[in-house]
Structure formats: structure tokens, C-alpha cells
Nucleic acid binder design. Structure first.
Lengths: 125, 125
DNA sequence: TTGTAATATAAGCCAATAGTTATATAATGA
DNA sequence: TCATTATATAACTATTGGCTTATATTACAA
């Protein structure tokens, strides 16, 4: 029980994973999209997403050869993360997330891989 | 910014520290009380409390040779932790905390050290 | 003033973690 | 079928983390 809660908080307590969760809070994304947006190696993203999944934070939907991930609504992590306004400085986060959302508008899941890979530029959140 | 949030979540994402935070949510406690209640070595407690302090979760009040710690209200971590009801199973936590609170009634901060050390029995949260 | 309590911290040990590169697998599409 | 894409995973390395024991520091209190 306490360990489950700790597991969730620990999974969220790592910058890369926290960034992934914030992105997934905006919309469902697949690994290759995360790779492009976050400008990190594919194994690195996969490994972090796996940890989020093990903690029950994220759920998976397979479509063709892609795996789309989104926040698991059963856990109200999205709400918890938006509770970052419980923390001191929160205004920046929100504006950053909004900027992020704008960048993500460019992602079109029906487009080809090459476009997924080349159309986006790395974003720092 | 993201790192600060991650730091807070990471500090909370460790079972021993989460137990400490839950205890401090009940009341202000000093190291030696935590040592007795949690039945752990003093360095272990001190080191974990230090991490909570560095994350800004906990604040310190010195009184004589003792250091009392409490949740820093500026960070609404108490609220975040009670948000464990955002997680799946939460009823047990609450009853556990209530039991814990009962145990802690025994602590009298004005009593002598020997009593602080001997009067309490270890509690598993 | 001396012993003891409360606390902090250092050193060392082992386990866990985050990253890399390399490779495997499975689906797609030419 | 064959090259390519998407993903997972293994093997390895370097760093961090949690714990212990030992020791230092400070404040009482006898």
C-alpha cells in the first residue's frame, strides 16, 4: 500500500518521466513521437515508459506496429500533476505546457513515419 | 522547474520517507521520536529527513538540543499526500494513520529522554 | 566538568538506476 | 521477399541511493 504509493511517486520523480507524463497529459502519443519531441534515444524513452506502465500511470494501446500511450484515468495522475499548482511556482509550468501543446499540434498520427521523424523539432519542457 | 517538481516527487517516492511525511502530517516530531516510532537507526532517519528538508517538504525548529520537524505549509504536500485518495486503495491508509495517531498520543515532548526512548513501541505503518 | 542524549555526518558497501550501444522481433510496404 | 519502421530488450558502464558503523558536535544535567 505505502509501497504502491511510493512506486507511483518515484516513477513521477524523475525529470524525463515527468516530462513524458506532462506530454501524455496533453494527448496520447506513441514511442516514436516521444522520441522526436523529446529528442532522446528510443531505448531511453521505451525504458522510461515501461516504468510508468509498471507503476500503473500509463496505459498502452497497440495500433499496427505502433504503441500509443496515454495516462491511465483510473489513477488520477493527471489531476495530481496539475496539482503542481500546490507547489510554489506553477505559472511557468502551465505556460510551458501550453507552448508544448502548440508544438504537438504538428503531429498527425496518420502521416508517414518519415514525416513523424522529420516534421517535429525537439522541444524542451 | 521540472526538476524541482521531480525532486519533490522523488523525495516522496521512497517508502521510509513517505512514512515520515505521513507521521509529520499528524504532528510535529523530532528525530528521536521518529527513531522510536519507526524503529529505525538514528542516522537512517536523519538522512531521510535531510532529503525531505532539501526538497522543501519539511521545515525544522530547534528547541534545546532537539530538532523538531513538520511539514512545510508553503508546499501543500500534506494535501498532496491526502490526495492518495486519488489513488486506488485509500481506506486502509486512513485507518492506519488514525491508529498511528493514537500511538503518538503517548509522546510528551516535555518528558525526559529516557521516557521518550522507552515509552513507545515500534509501529508499522 | 563530565557523562549522556540528540543530532549530524563521514566512510564504506551493495543494490538500484539511468544511460549507452547492439541486437532481436514484428509489422509494413515496395 | 526484402528493406525499413517501431518497439523491446539485453549487456554493459557509471552514477546514485540507502543502509550500516563509527565518529564528531552540541546541549543538558548531575
Amino acid at each position: 500500500m505505502i509501497d504502491k504509493t511510493a512506486q507511483i511517486l518515484k516513477a513521477l520523480g524523475e525529470p524525463t518521466r515527468l516530462r513524458i507524463v506532462r506530454l501524455l497529459k496533453e494527448r496520447e502519443l506513441c514511442i516514436c513521437e516521444l522520441v522526436v519531441v523529446m529528442d532522446m534515444s528510443q531505448p531511453r524513452i521505451s525504458q522510461h515508459v515501461k516504468i510508468l506502465k509498471q507503476a500503473g500511470i500509463v496505459r498502452e494501446r497497440k495500433e499496427k506496429q505502433r504503441c500509443f500511450f496515454s495516462l491511465d484515468d483510473r489513477l488520477k495522475v493527471g489531476k495530481l500533476i496539475s496539482m503542481e499548482n500546490l507547489m510554489n511556482t506553477n505559472i511557468e509550468i502551465i505556460s510551458e505546457l501550453q507552448a508544448e501543446g502548440t508544438r504537438l499540434q504538428n503531429i498527425d498520427h496518420n502521416q508517414q513515419v518519415i514525416e513523424c521523424r522529420n516534421q517535429l523539432e525537439p522541444v524542451s519542457i
